[in-house]
Design a binder for these strands. Structure first.
Lengths: 225, 225
DNA sequence: TCCTTATCCATACGTTGTATGATTATGTAC
DNA sequence: GTACATAATCATACAACGTATGGATAAGGA
């Protein structure tokens, strides 16, 4: 109704304030800075100095914003292929490390990214190429390549999920686990109790990097059979 | 103010309509039936024929309801331990299968369960005992047992996440992937393109069960080194 | 008996996603 | 140029959500 100084209506050519990319970029910053719950259409509009309803001309709804963010993360992945000069297992590990690193850049988005199946877009498909190449060089049959790639990616997803979740919480997993195990009735989980106790607080101080390497080595060893 | 026929105030002894368990059970049913987004405090109260605010006497907020659901799922896990009469690798696989099966019972909750780190409760710890026992029997050092268990669990989590996500969507992954790959510029992902094409629609018809077994075998083979 | 506490209900508030429709500019067709 | 469909913005409004506050009633220990 009232137009109190602000220009309303369609902006002049070249003066558009919004675009799908601009919106998604702003959304990504909000999520990175303040978490996924902080992302509301109103706040998003506010940071873009725009009316909330304007967003809906570029994205159909909030779900599309989230899906767009997942897409953005995948698009930002850089999976440098060391090429065929290194052994296939090193090539495979390099791809896996790069994939994990990419997911780790936006921990607040991990959940969204990993559960958004519509993120099975071209970007994702291309992302998987280095895995396929390395596994192919390993001499696996097509079917084996397919399954091995899936297994590897599932592991990375599960690992990243844990990494993102724990990181979001207080960083107290190890001592917490130890305390909890000690409080258990002795016979509920004897082996676990013994092993955790033997490891002690220091041994339990879980280092994500070495945990990832360990899992990776196990998988590659299994593929090498 | 007005009490139109309904009894208000504290119910007589033994006539309480609510309890933490009753609420969580009702919540689980809603989530199983209609998905996690269908779970609102108001709907939950309605199915229990209770005022929404009554729930807050038994659970502090909605987050606690969700955490309680995660707990419920873990508590419902049955990890039958075949015992030490079978080889350690069969024992390990049995535990893994049972864990996956448990997570699969409530696919709409998978995301919540897997990302809820506060679900690291006694229940979860006890859940892991069979993994530890089998790995211990394999002759691994404590540190190795710890890392191997984590790796295995990460794989199961990633796998379950994928399984739950895809199942929630239309079940069109394989043809979709094929279509998408075919539409790619030929040189974007040559190996992937070749392998997917060789496999064809039938080869790609991904069977979750065999995919899981394949990953499991690879991991166990890797541990056996 | 009195008092605290537990369990319920009613009302209300702020926030959210978004439906509807107005306003203004763009780009195309005549 | 004059229409007209389309696109980009803003203003208003609504239903649904989580939950704060407070009142009613009964339970259970002092």
């Amino acid at each position: 109704m009232v137009n109190d100084g602000k220009r309303s209506g369609r902006p002049r050519a070249g003066e558009e304030r919004l675009s799908r990319e601009a919106i998604l970029t702003a959304a990504l910053r909000i999520v990175d800075d303040d978490g996924i719950d902080a992302l509301t259409m109103r706040r998003l509009a506010a940071t873009l100095k725009v009316n909330p309803m304007s967003l809906y001309h570029h994205l159909p709804n909030k779900a599309a914003v989230l899906a767009g963010l997942a897409e953005l993360v995948f698009a930002g992945l850089e999976l440098p292929d060391p090429g065929d000069t290194v052994p296939w297992d090193e090539q495979l590990k390099a791809a896996a490390r790069a994939y994990r690193d990419g997911l780790r850049q936006h921990p607040n988005l991990a959940l969204q990214v990993l559960s958004d199946t519509s993120a099975v877009s071209d970007v994702v498909v291309v992302t998987m190429e280095p895995f396929y190449r390395a596994l192919d060089r390993a001499g696996l049959a097509p079917r084996e390549v397919f399954e091995a790639a899936n297994t590897l990616i599932d592991f990375i997803h599960g690992f990243s999920l844990g990494e993102a979740s724990v990181r979001a919480e207080t960083f107290e997993l190890a001592p917490d686990l130890l305390t909890r195990v000690r409080a258990l009735p002795a016979d509920k989980a004897p082996t676990l109790t013994r092993i955790v106790t033997e490891l002690g607080p220091d041994g339990l101080a879980y280092d994500f990097d070495s945990g990832f390497e360990s899992g990776l080595s196990t998988l590659v060893a299994g593929l090498r059979r």
